[in-house]
Design a protein around this nucleic acid. Structure first.
Length: 299
DNA sequence: CTAGGATCCTGTCAGC
DNA sequence: TGCTGACAGGATCCTA
């Protein structure tokens, strides 16, 4: 479920907690074969050199010339736990101090690790990085560092909203002019980073109805949409990423993001904060889509 | 080529 | 209590 802001939050958190502090990889335990692509033993003995991010993909660079592309997809979580606090957790306080958790929100953040949903475990000298993934859509792919940019998924990724000009986006929209704008901005080859929450939020910010055909947007509207995409994701990164029930920041603290900041997502039947009209939820391209019928007119 | 639906998988929740 | 179907923040594959 993590979209760009959640992955960026994880990247920052892991960088702070792990970089230069965790030692060498001692073991890689693969509980679910399909969750790890490549040869896990390749990174044994290596240290972490840095964390990178491309769209919703997290990239970990190791000291031996190999890297790992980690994609959390719908339900992935990354949990770093310092060595001396592995196993059963004694108190909420201990979790906050010793654990970094990010990604899909669930009780697993504070549960015993590894657990039923743990797919891969990377053991370091000073702790363990757990990759949990309920639905098994996510993956860790180990490959040579030089191969990362040639990876099929990475290669196809479009620019992120901050790197893209309105003209570039407008031009891309013309290739999908018959499709609803909502589904087009979810396409990572059009613009990278938006998922179902931030697509809806960016459209609300822009006053654009999600069902409008991509080819009907004016250049001006496209510019506002690009600005909206930047704004909603920046706001979320500042808040430490969002989750439906809570968000977990790099220090493990929790809070409610959606209740505070989301204007339309998960707010079906509630009043639009601008005009009091009830937020509508409809299915579009197989995805739940939320909007204000008054602020985001179809024509 | 595009658009749209099915698909991968597990878990939860509303409704009967 | 079950049971059933719908749905979940992603991306790809298949078909028309």
């Amino acid at each position: 479920m993590p979209e760009l802001p959640e992955v960026e939050t994880i990247r920052r958190g892991l960088e702070e907690k792990m970089l230069g502090r965790v030692g060498k990889v001692l073991d890689v335990k693969v509980y679910e074969q399909k969750s790890l692509i490549g040869e896990p033993e390749i990174i044994l003995g290596a240290e972490i050199e840095g964390f990178d991010r491309k769209g919703k993909a997290l990239i970990v660079h190791f000291s031996n010339g190999f890297s790992a592309i980690i994609h959390l997809r719908m339900t992935g979580q990354l949990i770093w736990r310092e060595k001396y606090s592995c196993g059963d957790i004694k108190s909420e306080q201990e979790i906050v101090e010793k654990t970094f958790a990010g990604g899909h929100p669930s009780e697993n953040f504070v549960a015993k690790l590894p657990n039923k949903q743990t797919r891969v475990e990377i053991v370091f000298e000073n702790g363990v990085l757990f990759f949990n993934d309920q639905r098994k859509f996510g993956f860790i792919k180990i490959l040579e560092r030089d191969e990362v940019k040639k990876d099929k998924f990475i290669k196809k990724l479009a620019k992120e909203p901050w790197e893209m000009t309105p003209e570039e986006l407008f031009s891309k929209l013309q290739k999908h002019k018959g499709a609803p704008i909502k589904t087009v901005i979810l396409d990572q080859t059009v613009i990278a980073g938006l998922g179902n929450i931030y697509a809806d939020e960016a459209l609300y910010f822009s006053g654009i109805n999600p069902k409008r055909k991509a080819g009907e947007l004016t250049e001006e509207e496209t510019g506002i949409l690009l600005l909206g995409a930047r704004k909603v994701m920046e706001k979320s990164i500042e808040a430490g990423g969002s989750t439906i029930r809570n968000y977990v920041k790099s220090d493990g603290t929790r809070g409610d993001y959606l209740d505070l900041f989301a204007e339309v997502y998960n707010r079906e039947g509630k009043e639009c904060r601008k005009c009091k009209t009830k937020i509508v939820k409809e299915k579009l391209g197989g995805r739940g889509t939320h909007y204000c019928p008054k602020c985001q007119k179809e024509n």
